[in-house]
Amino acid sequence: MQNRLQAENLPEAIEKLLQNQECLSYLVFVSGDCFQVREIYSPDSKRILYGLQREYSRLGRSLVDAIWFHHPAKLLLVCGQELFWSEVDVYKCHIAGPLFTDNLLRIRKKNPGGDIASSWEFRTGEWKKANRTSFQKETANAMSETEGSFLEEVHLDRKLRDTTHPVFR
């Protein structure tokens, strides 16, 4: 197994920023592609989860490239003029199981019609503070999460005929 970042406790300040609705999050990949991402949080004060909307997208491809070829990415948290960033190990892709369900239900709680294609687990390293201008180029050109997507991905329980669900009984 290659050397990977361990799931260490997140600094308290970073946890707070992750919960702050005013902060913007960005993922920057080795290709230089940068995406503004919304559904990002920590389920356990260690790991970070990101709910990807569409896998057949430029962002979906970047995540796959990062996990397959162990290409590190960067996670930026921007709050006002402050910017914190850390190197990110794109560690795991969840398509079922407790972390996937946690991520999905969290999204559906906010938006009952919401869905995610997969949940990506990141492990972060040391968090660094920087001036917002240091990532100006990346964030100014940030793409949307669904950039280049060509297929809407919806779980079958979102295609049911009626909302008197659980399945009409």
Binding site: D115, E153, H155
Partner: peptide, 12 residues
């Protein structure tokens, strides 16, 4: 019916 009660568990 029973299977689909599990949120987000099936895509096909």
């Amino acid at each position: 019916q029973e299977a689909l009660k599990e949120p987000g568990r099936y895509s096909q």
